[in-house]
């Protein structure tokens, strides 16, 4: 779990930075827990694949993972309204890529710290999935950690799918 916490830290710090700078609010992370099912906790999810290599004892090993953010619709709409500096009342195509942009920025920022930790991650294009009770297909051989996040606009969840490299 400590290896997992170390991997998730740059993502948590990244999303806090995004919220402070571009959503104009503080974001409080809760206690991380291991997720045992595939179902999304929210209605709208922004997903970023993480593919690359990690250096273990001088050797590059293939690495795969996934970073995602999932929101209930009302929380998503409030966050999108704050970030875009205009009021929205429902989920529509004007705000559909807000979550993906947040995921993109967070991953870009986390990448710098992860590079220092020996990870060489290729930035993928983020995607958005919507619908109540949607499920994810996590990369095989990975463990998923969930970090609850809380701000003035409501609560949502960050998930990080991680492949241990110390096996």
């Amino acid at each position: 779990m400590s290896e997992f916490i170390e991997f998730s830290k740059p993502f948590v710090e990244g999303i806090q930075k995004v919220f402070e700078t571009m959503v104009f609010t503080k974001l409080e992370p809760g206690k991380p827990i291991i997720k045992s099912d595939r179902q999304a906790k929210g209605d709208i999810s922004a997903i970023m694949g993480l593919i690359g290599t990690v250096e273990v004892e001088g050797t590059d090993r293939e690495f795969q993972g996934m970073f995602l953010l999932t929101w209930e619709t009302d929380v998503y709409v409030k966050i999108a309204s704050a970030m875009l500096m205009e009021e929205y009342t429902d989920f529509n195509d004007q705000i559909e890529d807000v979550g993906a942009e947040i995921a993109n920025i967070v991953t870009g920022n986390a990448k710098r710290t992860l590079t220092q930790m020996g990870f060489k991650i290729e930035m993928a294009v983020p995607s958005t999935v919507t619908g109540k009770g949607h499920c994810f297909k996590y990369p095989s051989g990975t463990t998923t950690i969930m970090v609850p996040l809380s701000c003035v606009h409501g609560d949502f969840v960050m998930e990080l799918c991680y492949q241990s490299h110390n096996d």
């Binding site: 700078t21 993109n104 920025i105």
Partner: peptide, 27 residues
């Protein structure tokens, strides 16, 4: 404008003739 805050990117952009560089998130 970029989400990737790595120094290597700055060097690449400067060499290509960028006028300035801003890393997301920004105010």
């Amino acid at each position: 404008v970029t989400a990737e805050a790595e120094q290597g990117n700055v060097v690449i952009a400067v060499k290509a003739g960028v006028s300035n560089f801003i890393v997301k998130p920004f105010s």
